[in-house]
């Protein structure tokens, strides 16, 4: 199992009021699955993603990620664990403002101990993968929101993490870029065997799912209907860039 949630609850205690954000969630995910979380605002999607991303700890229950019980890890080890295993994409503000696109993408790899030149090499290949091969030297403020989000996808794939987590990745960008982003997520999911978790309000995003989980009042309900998977966009450049990435990975030993 890539991710195993056993009876996970999260209760926020703000002194006066108690909010049950997650209420006994059970969810097992095999490697290579693409799980789309849907549900109304406040139903606990972000809370669940944060817990899987090891950014938050459950009030009760167990969280096993790649077989590791992350609740037991101290913060310092969690940092390293996240670096290696989790790619996280927020709704917006995913890039360090004073680093170029390639530096942003290379950052997690360098932090992992990969030599700077090799990290930048892989970063540029990843930027090609997301269709931004010639934006490598641009700063975030020189790019549109959609481009930034694509750079962020490249960054979240930098350390070849087995798990990719995206919280409403398309809600702040235009339709065309949203389509590209979804295509890229699917490619990552299929080609790199990355396990994907996406939270969204957008039914369009459900197209990339292998499983759909509905959230309501902190509880998770699995959708019985088999999701449709169709990709309309042409992502040939991504596929060829992927070959390049594989080659570089052999060099780095990722």
């Amino acid at each position: 199992m890539a991710v195993e949630l056993i009876n996970v609850s999260k209760i926020y205690n703000s002194g006066v009021a108690k909010t049950v954000a997650l209420d006994g969630v059970n969810l097992s995910t095999a490697p290579g699955e693409a799980v789309v979380l849907m549900g109304p605002s406040g139903s606990g999607k972000t809370t669940l993603l944060n817990i899987i991303a090891t950014l938050d700890r459950p009030t009760s229950g167990h969280v096993l990620i790649m077989g590791v019980d992350v609740a037991k890890l101290p913060e310092r080890e969690l940092e390293r664990f996240r670096l290696k295993n989790i790619g996280y994409l927020f709704q917006s503000f995913n890039l360090v403002p004073y680093l170029t696109a390639e530096q942003n993408v290379a950052l997690p790899l360098i932090a992992l101990g990969v030599k700077k030149e090799l990290a930048l090499l892989r970063a540029r290949a990843l930027l090609e993968f997301v269709g931004l091969g010639n934006a490598a030297r641009l700063y975030p403020h020189q790019m549109s929101g959609g481009m930034q989000q694509r750079v962020a996808i490249a960054r979240s794939l930098a350390t070849k993490p087995p798990i990719l987590i995206l919280d409403e990745p398309t809600s702040n960008i235009d339709l065309d870029n949203a389509a590209v982003v979804l295509g890229l997520i699917t490619l990552a999911n299929r080609l790199m065997k990355t396990t994907v978790f996406v939270a969204t309000h957008d039914p369009e995003v459900a197209r990339i799912a292998t499983r759909i989980v509905y959230m309501r009042g902190g509880r998770a309900y699995e959708s019985p209907e088999p999701p449709r998977r169709e990709l309309k966009i042409n992502l040939e450049h991504a596929a060829s860039a992927f070959e390049k990435i594989r080659h570089i990975d052999e060099l780095i030993g990722l």
Partner: peptide
């Protein structure tokens, strides 16, 4: 953001 990526404190 850096911490979410996994850059240590």
């Amino acid at each position: 953001l850096l911490k979410a990526i996994g850059i240590s404190s």
